[in-house]
Simulated assay, not measured.
Amino acid sequence: MDIGAYLERIGHTGPVRADAATLAAVHRAQLGTVPYENLDIQAGLVPSLHPDDLFDKIVRRRRGGYCYELNSLLALVLEDIGLEVTRVRGAVGPRDAEPPEWANHLALLVRADGRLWVADAGLGDGFLEPLPLEPGRYRQGPFTYTVEPGGDGTTWWIGHHGKAAVPGYLLDTEPRSAAYFEPYHRAKATSPESVFVRTLVAQRPFPDGSLTLRGNALTELAPVGKNTVLLPDAAAFAEVLSDRFGLTPDGADTAALFAKASAQTAEHLARG
């Protein structure tokens, strides 16, 4: 792992130590520079989770990814720094979902300065700094996140802020290997029923809001409210990807992606 190249990619210039301060700084920096996006899946590709391929895509080619990619890379970086990292499964969705859709999300538990932290760079519009795995409500900017035990000794509820795209996720603290997530990742990247196959998405969180592209609908959440516009053509679509998300889909047909995204939005609006 070329830590120097990764740190340059995320713009981190501070000290790098196996402590909570570095964990928070790297977490915030990755979320601030590496977007959540599924453009490869929309182009019919299955992104590789091999460490070399993750590094090439996200660091060298300056792309983003979704949870299996973004948190896999973050885990490798934090381990290389010297932190103790545990890969765990999550179930994004309502807290009372029956049954929970386990492993539709990969999250990380990181031990630093004697505490256990939830690190997550793959939630789309998620928390910018790690949350302690301790019961409580944690304020970050204008948003409040909730951490509550699930009652069975192994699960926790990680509650998102009220204006987020998802309500939160259940987290199972049992350690999982990187290989454990491969079949879930492949299913999410290929199944016609997968939301990642059905809908193009790119997201970035900010200290006081977030930016979400879903289909060709661009939504900006800011302190003054929420505003959504439909991108009118492929040129505007490419400009938003580049200027707002820092993305240039290498080798992808942007016009084809825009046409697909527009059709997705039209179908969504037709369903009401």
Rank of each mutant, 00 (worst) to 15 (best):
L116M: 13
D120V: 02
G122R: 02
D125T: 11
E129Q: 09
E129N: 03
E129D: 11
L131F: 01
P132D: 07
P132T: 06
L133W: 10
L133E: 02
E134Q: 14
E134S: 13
P135R: 06
P135H: 02
G136E: 11
G136K: 05
R137F: 04
R137D: 12
Y138H: 08
Y138L: 07
R139S: 05
P142K: 02
F143W: 08
E148L: 12
G150P: 01
G151H: 10
G153N: 12
W156Y: 08
W156Q: 01
G159F: 12
H161P: 04
H161F: 14
H161Q: 01
P167F: 06
P167L: 03
G168H: 10
G168M: 08
Y169G: 09
Y169M: 07
Y169W: 11
T173L: 12
P175A: 09
R176D: 02
A178M: 06
A179Q: 15
Y180V: 00
Y180P: 05
F181P: 04
A187H: 04
A187F: 15
P192V: 07
P192K: 09
F196E: 05
F196M: 10
A202E: 10
Q203I: 06
Q203G: 08
P207N: 06
G209S: 02
T212H: 09
G215S: 11
N216Q: 12
N216Y: 00
A217N: 11
A217P: 06
L218E: 04
L218G: 06
T219I: 07
E220D: 13
V224H: 15
G225M: 07
G225V: 03
V229Q: 13
L230S: 09
